[in-house]
Simulated assay, not measured.
Amino acid sequence: MLGAALALLCGCTGEPPAPPSPTSTTTTAPPTPVKGLSGIPATGIGVTALLPTTGPTLFDADRGATASPPGYPGGLGVVRVGKQAVLTAYPVGTADEAPYEMFAYTGPSTPPRSLGRAWSVAPGADQQSVWLIRQDAPDSCRLQHVSLTGAAVGELGHGQSASCRTQVRAETPHGLLITINSGSAESTDALIDPQTGRTVRQYPRILGATGDWLLLDGFTDLSLLNLRDGSTKPLTRPASGGGPPIVVPSRDGYVFAVDFVNPSYRGPVQTRDIWLLSLNTRTWEHAPGMPFITDHLKQGGGIDWSADGDLVLSDGVLAAWHPGEPQWRLGKATLPDGEWNGIAVLP
């Protein structure tokens, strides 16, 4: 069993199991996208997000940039970890193919806390730690657990050997979601026990994980896997013209925000189409004003949840929508230009 576990982390797997057979398909044509995100201008929507600009920007939806935390190199990405965040950047003076520099965000006016270099980062289930694929030598990587609390970064054990092409994505109470051979045609997804590397579940495509649930991508439809009892429930894929979605679980773990993005809708046009999936009822809710044509999918886009249960979207401005509301609430301040992507809503 240990040998199989190490083989999984090192990216050497057998044929993955076939995804669940779909029981239904949708024939409804997706709606035609509208130009731009629609909503109502709002005052004081109460959203502040960390943007991975060069250097990072703490951005208030209504007032604009409020701070540029010192000591960070050029931005590349950001991951929210509970009420904290980790920023990813290319190391200064090195080639793009080098491992990234990881920094724990420590506040608007204090220098960052370095986590060292790693190929990928994922939030821990406790929302106070992260998992890293750490490179120790030119051809040697390991999976490591790192605490973000306390006076200094704490490495929770040395970790275990892993392929540098393994991407860590999210930890649940049932295991750590990873992508094996990330970036290749042979990539596959798995939920593993991070302490031993044992495979808990493995599928060609796991779109999201939270709590007791995995969202699986089949050939035509989606399905939900309940990790408590192993049951799988089929889902009809929403009538969306988007491609593989970006999936972000709500902070309470009961809802998936599913952003069907299409970077080449009818040529160079980019579109977004956001749906919510209730994990308790397995029902879909279409966000208002969807789908829409955007200029910010590849630059300046992002999606996250606030502590109040609002879905927050960055697309020219920061916009907030509480499930059930008829419209998005649009912030007044225009987001900065530049080659950044992703947001972390704080706290």
Rank of each mutant, 00 (worst) to 15 (best):
P56A: 14
D193L: 12
S109K: 15
L50M: 11
P56G: 07
S278Y: 02
G331A: 06
P336K: 03
I40G: 06
D212E: 14
L311T: 01
H322V: 06
E325A: 15
L330Y: 00
T271A: 14
R251K: 11
G211T: 09
T25E: 13
P22A: 15
S306G: 13
P19E: 11
L87T: 03
A7H: 09
A118N: 01
E285S: 15
H286R: 15
P291V: 05
L311Q: 01
R169F: 05
T94Y: 07
P123K: 04
S278M: 08
L6Y: 09
A319V: 09
D126Y: 07
L224N: 01
T334S: 14
A42Q: 08
G36S: 10
C12A: 14
L318S: 01
L177C: 10
S161P: 02
T166E: 05
R113V: 02
Q167T: 14
T43Y: 09
G342I: 01
K298D: 13
P123Y: 06
A170C: 08
D304E: 06
V78N: 00
I293L: 14
V34G: 14
V248G: 00
G338S: 09
G331M: 02
Y100E: 02
H296R: 15
A287K: 01
L225P: 07
T54E: 13
P91W: 06
P70I: 09
M1P: 11
V261N: 02
L2R: 14
S240M: 04
L156S: 07
L215V: 10
Y203R: 11
L346G: 04
Q127K: 11
P111E: 13
T149K: 11
A67L: 04
G302D: 09
G11T: 00
N226Q: 07
P245M: 06
G11L: 00
G267P: 08
T294A: 11
R282G: 06
L191D: 04
I343N: 00
P112L: 08
A319L: 09
I40L: 12
V78E: 02
G300P: 07
L76T: 01
A137P: 00
N226D: 15
V345Q: 01
L222W: 10
G46T: 04
D96C: 06
L148W: 03
G82P: 10
I274M: 08
Y203D: 10
G316H: 01
L115S: 00
G309N: 09
T88R: 05
D62C: 07
T210R: 01
A4H: 08
P173M: 07
C141S: 12
T179Y: 05
T172P: 08
H145A: 06
A29P: 05
M102C: 07
T26S: 15
D259N: 15
L156N: 12
S38M: 09
G230I: 05
P204N: 11
L227C: 12
I40W: 08
I133C: 08
G218A: 05
R63S: 14
D259L: 10
A185C: 09
T25K: 11
P69Y: 06
G300R: 03
S314L: 06
L115W: 04
P234F: 05
G183V: 12
T13F: 12
E171W: 05
G243H: 11
V261P: 00
P194H: 05
C141W: 01
D229L: 11
T271M: 15
L330W: 03
S114E: 13
